[in-house]
Each structure stands twice: as structure tokens, then as C-alpha cells.
Amino acid sequence: MAMNTPTPYDPEDIESLMLHKRFEELYPEEREFVLRHVDGADEYESMRRMLHDLLEDRDSGGLLEPDPAIRRNLMAMFPSEERSGFRIWLNSLLLKLWPPALIWYRTPAFQLAFSTAALLLAVWVIWPAPGAELAQNRVTPAVGEKEALPTEADSLVPAAPAEVQPVETETDHQDQPVHAESSTEMEITDVTPGAYPPVQSDDYSDDKIAKAATAPNNTADGEGLSVFANQAEKSENESVEAMSESKARNRKSNTNMIQPPVSSSMHEVDGLLDVLYTAR
């Protein structure tokens, strides 16, 4: 019966013996065990006293209180509730896409093949098709071309109103020769039908202009530059009026519709008219 009662100390543990028994209280076999480790009763009692002091000191000292900031900082390491839900959703999606049970996609051969396919796909998507490049070349103006294509900004800008020159009298240009070349070399290529009245080619033919320029001012039959100038003045006035009206009409219509591209040929027409004025 006595053998089965649990002892509060371990007979093979000297620390336990010191805590529970004085040297005099030790059994002979315990004393024998203790004396194998300590020099004698004095050392045993001294160690025993120190051990009790240690435990008493520990109990009185207690545990230190850590800084509350430690706890706050550690709690801040956890993600917020909203983010955690999003993360769980993402994780589950990734797990469905790439289940960890499957290991075939971890093989280097598959990874290499997949990377190559992805690279080729990216190149195919990004690289421009040869046909598209040709089409682009067709639209792109040639390097040596002088006249640039009208831009959208140019087309939206309304045409500058033609400045109507004041009608000069006949005497202003009596002594000045008329340079017919300037009117013959220009070609009207881009005239919108209906925008301008048709020019009477008979009245402004090169031959007549040249003839009038070379003819003396005072002739016997009354023909000459003055006569021609009268006719020209009359037709010019008509055409200028018609042109002003049409330009005003065009300007009014520009508020509602996009202005057609104003090419330099339009300016050539204006220049031609200026020349004709000068010729007068």
C-alpha cells in the first residue's frame, strides 16, 4: 500500500528533494543519492534555502506587462474583413484553376510549352499584319509630295472670306502693261460646281489678253485695251458679285455642315481673280 502512494517529489530529482525535504528528513537511499551530487548537509541546506528564495522571488516579482502597442501592431497585421473575403474568393478561384492535387502542370516540359504558346500568341496579337501595313502605305503620302493632305482641323476651319478689291478706274492702269502669263499658267482644278459662276473663256482668252496688252491705247477704230477693259470690267463685276454671294451662302452653310477641304486650288482661283483685277 505504501509503495503505491504518490510522493510529492521525484526521488531521482535532487531539485524536487530540496524543495520538499530537509536533509534530516531524507531516507537513507535518498541521502545516498543526494550525497553523490553535493558535498554535504551544509551545501544541501544552502542550496535548499536558495531554491526557496528563488521561488519566492519569482512569485513576488510576477510577470512584466508588455507594451500595449505590441498587441496593436500585431493585430494590425491581420487583413480587414472585406479584404479577407475578397482574398478567400480569389484563393478559391485559383485553387479551382490550379488544383494542388494535380502536378502535371508543374512539369518543366508543360511549363516550357505553355510559355512558348503564350509568347507566340502575344506576338501574333501584337505584331501588325502585312496587309494592314500596305493599306497604311497607300494612304500615307509619298515622301516627295509637296502638298500635304488636309487635316481634320483644316477642314473645320471656315474659308477666309475673299477680300473684294475696290473697283479701280480705268485711268489707274492705263500705263501699266498687263502680264497675261500669270493668268494663263494657272489652272482651276478644284472649283465646286455652282459655287462660282462659269468664267467666260472667250472674254479672258490668252490671245485677246495678249492682243489687248500689245495694242496701242488710242487706236483709230476705237478697239484696244480700253474697250476690252470695259467689257472685262462688266463681266468681272458680275462675277465678283456672284462670287461674294456664293461665298456668303457657303459661309452660312458652314455653320451646319463640315466645310469641304480647302485646297490650294481655291486660293489659286482667288489669285487668278486678283490678277484679273490687276489686269483691269
Binding site: 510577470l63 512584466l64 506587462e65 508588455p66 505590441i70 498587441r71
Partner: peptide, 8 residues
């Protein structure tokens, strides 16, 4: 449970 112990 273990904060104080570890700090000490």
C-alpha cells in the same frame, strides 16, 4: 496567454 511570459 503567452504575451506576458514571452516579454518577461
Amino acid at each position: 496567454r503567452y504575451g506576458k511570459l514571452m516579454y518577461t
